[in-house]
Design a binder for these strands. Structure first.
Lengths: 376, 376
DNA sequence: GAAACTTATGGAAAGGTTTCCTGAACCAGG
DNA sequence: CCTGGTTCAGGAAACCTTTCCATAAGTTTC
């Protein structure tokens, strides 16, 4: 095996067709003569054995400084890169991590993905993306056909219910798993403390003096794990109860977890002046923003006539002056990566607890204020 | 390092510990008895040779119906899955495609990623995600260290400038490449016809009778390829010129490609009644929505006092009644996948043209109307 | 000055597939 | 009955690393 691939220098034109031609020419050129160099070539160029090349390049085992220099020089000259297939065939490690995520195009999920990606790349792992909705057959297809196919070293599941059988299958293959979002049956998971976050938000409103508060939560759709909704509702009710404020079925409304969802419910809720609360706790910032937009349209001043608080600290929240309980999905992603990587790199290690709560904090802006004193 | 800076409080809820115990039990179970079966085991269980198993399972070559049944039965019983490392070591194919994308958490990019992912998974390929900002060193790190590492069969680059040297490197390795978004030097790319889309939007305003139109485009940041901005500006100016309408430096404003960006520039532009145009063509829906929000805040009625049109058909556009020129980033992603897969599966094939234009269409809503007849 | 380490290197085996080559069985046509 | 083509199956080579084992030189210790 020899490296016959001579470097091709070609002037690139700006025009589209010319660029295309350039590209086609490269294509055919490729067909003619491309050979990629292997470890053998590097070894002979550096005047050492394959074993030494492997050690020099991977940094494992004894290699003298000069030899290492010679080898890496030769490798660089030949443009050598290890075949990850061959490498992982013998080591049993693929160096990539599968990420199952139900949606991408939504702030929460996108941020998680960004965090996971960053953390993974930092540590030299590749990320295999499986964007799987919650339908059972899609998920099991991914599980059976893709994930298990010995292509990933570990799995990070975002807000995805995994059946015990599936968990067992993965763990049975010795692959670390971590979850983000909902509590996943039997696998360590990181998320915020939804109950506490909701309590914090509600307490903020209570502290301001609000007594008439409505919670707008998510409905059971595919957007989120339904646990999120029930927990945030729970925190809300807990706070009310602790403050000795009665609540009934009118204290809670469900809608889609996005701006239009909040807008719809806002219009509906605020349209009737008699039913209008003095404050709304939305389970997500996007919902809160939708509520604010509805309020504006109805001529209801925020925060003078209505206080609104959300959860997330969404990028748009600042623009709307939205008071919110911040969470950082990207850091949750990084945390999950930490877990699986550590399990990968020091076998036997496992998280101390089945669950880690990511920090949250109250971000006060201009959408909350004491309720307007009752006029006569 | 990631989580070290952000303390995570750990709590053991009742259910949490149960889950953990379950998980740990699985762990130890693993240590005791896991053995993964290889092709050899399947062969002996089915009473045939490894070669036959391979043929039966991959569907290549002659295998009798009964043998195939026996083999797949045995494979299923043993829970056998092929080692993709071993497989790709000999075939030279990894069956996954690398996707380089500058951002994830933005509608345009998220949609592309969703489309690419869907198309790839449909065809049995895995997607390796590289979320790379435009900084040179990050990009080259990905190129040199990850992509080229023989881990992907093809590359899809989203809105990323690739240097000729990098292109050459990839093509030199025989890996198909396709781009989405900006015109990439020397590689086939799919995108909308930005000039035409901008012209279409502008012509819509002109047709309604507007003469005083301002274009709000993107500034040169990392959000988008700057070609997008210049092309949409070009289409805008072309339409004005064709209609015989003069334009000057006041006809164009640049801002960030998001809602706050549009809001800022909207406030600034609409704040001064003398400078206020009758219509605004925003280069992106998010910018247009920001403008609408600014207008609302200033008491300017859309579309009575101001028409606004955008490009994208963003999910929020419907809620804001925004007239827009629709594009489908997900379909562009699928198109790019088509290209690379076809090149992979029928060697020698290459796209007819260096560029494909994805379709756009005008979606009329309530944000545009004829200008208010001049009073006074 | 010998024994015991440590450091440096090479040869060879191993890892799990796919595919090439070969041969057997079967069938149709002459 | 022989030939040639097709279908089926097995043995063995090949794919490219990493790692185990062996060897050898250099260094420390008693």
């Amino acid at each position: 095996m020899t490296c016959s691939g001579h470097p091709v220098t070609v002037a690139l034109a700006a025009s589209g067709t010319r660029a295309l031609r350039f590209w086609k020419r490269l294509q055919t050129k490729v067909d003619e003569e491309v050979t990629v160099s292997g470890i053998e070539d590097v070894a002979s160029l550096a005047g050492v054995s394959k074993a030494t090349v492997s050690r020099a390049l991977s940094g494992r085992g004894y290699v003298s400084v000069e030899t290492r220099a010679k080898v890496s020089d030769a490798a660089h000259r030949l443009g050598y890169v290890v075949s990850s297939s061959a490498s992982s065939l013998v080591t049993g490690r693929t160096n990539n991590v599968g990420v199952i995520i139900p949606r991408i195009n939504q702030w929460f999920f996108g941020s998680i993905l960004e965090g996971v990606e960053r953390a993974l790349l930092d540590r030299g792992y590749d990320l295999m993306l499986y964007n799987v909705s919650k339908t059972v057959e899609e998920r099991s297809k991914v599980f059976e056909y893709f994930l298990v196919r010995k292509r990933v070293d570990a799995v990070i599941a975002v807000t995805l219910e995994i059946t015990p059988a599936e968990t067992e299958r993965l763990v049975g293959l010795g692959k670390p798993i971590a979850g983000i979002g909902g509590p996943l049956e039997g696998i360590p998971t990181v998320s915020i403390d939804d109950v506490a976050a909701a309590r914090l938000a509600t307490e903020h409103l209570l502290l301001l003096g609000h007594r008439d508060i409505v919670h707008v939560g998510g409905d059971v759709d595919e957007q989120m794990d339904f646990h999120v909704h029930s927990k945030r509702l729970k925190g809300f009710l807990e706070a009310l109860t602790a403050a000795g404020i009665p609540h009934d079925e009118n204290s809670y409304l469900a809608t889609r977890f996005d701006i239009p969802g909040g807008y719809r419910v806002g219009k509906q809720l605020l349209g009737d002046p008699r039913r209008r609360p003095t404050a709304i706790f939305a389970a997500a910032d996007e919902v809160a923003i939708g509520v604010i937009l509805a309020a504006r349209e109805l001529g209801i001043s925020v925060p003078d006539d209505l206080s609104v608080i959300g959860i997330d600290n969404h990028p748009l929240s600042d623009m709307f002056g939205l008071t919110t309980v911040e969470q950082r999905p990207d850091l949750q992603g990084e945390h999950a990566v930490d877990w699986v990587i550590r399990q990968l790199e020091q076998p036997g290690w496992s998280p101390d607890a089945g669950h880690a709560f990511a920090p949250t904090r109250l971000v006060m802006r201009s959408s909350t204020a004491p309720p307007r004193p009752r006029t006569g």
